[in-house]
């Protein structure tokens, strides 16, 4: 190619995935430890009454519009975060074969589970 032509720049679509990754990372960092603390320690130790986490209570929460939204966000965004990390982790580990397929499988899985959770929550109403 001659040197005097202006270089063509190709815009990356990474901002979409980076945005989901970043949002998921924030949630994972802030809420996952709290959720583990509550469900893994405070309830088993009896510090929080387990009646607060009875089937009826959780079902009522998940079938309210705000509860459903919270559950969806708390499941979907950390999933996008994780699979984005795995996708880039594969590159870091030197797994170069089938990058496009890796992308389809990673983000496809995150997308499929997000849709699955969304449908699941929707049919609970």
């Amino acid at each position: 190619m001659p040197n005097n032509t202006e270089k063509t720049y190709v815009r990356s679509h990474e901002p979409v995935f980076w945005g989901l990754f970043g949002a998921g990372g924030m949630l994972t960092a802030f809420f996952t430890p709290v959720m583990i603390l509550i469900t893994g320690l405070l309830i088993p130790l009896g510090i929080i009454d387990k009646q607060h986490f009875s089937y009826e209570k959780i079902n009522a929460f998940a079938t309210s519009w705000y509860g459903a939204a919270i559950v969806l966000v708390l499941v979907a965004l950390p999933l996008w975060h994780t699979l984005h990390r795995i996708f880039h982790g594969l590159h870091d580990l030197g797994v170069h074969r089938g990058r496009d397929w890796q992308q389809v499988i990673c983000y496809g899985f995150a997308f499929a589970v997000s849709v699955f959770v969304f449908t699941l929550l929707l049919q609970m109403f």
Binding site: Y9, V10, R11, S12, E14, P15, W18
Partner: peptide, 9 residues
């Protein structure tokens, strides 16, 4: 330049 895959991404 920034927006490319070989830029910041």
């Amino acid at each position: 330049i920034v927006n490319q895959e070989e830029g910041v991404w």
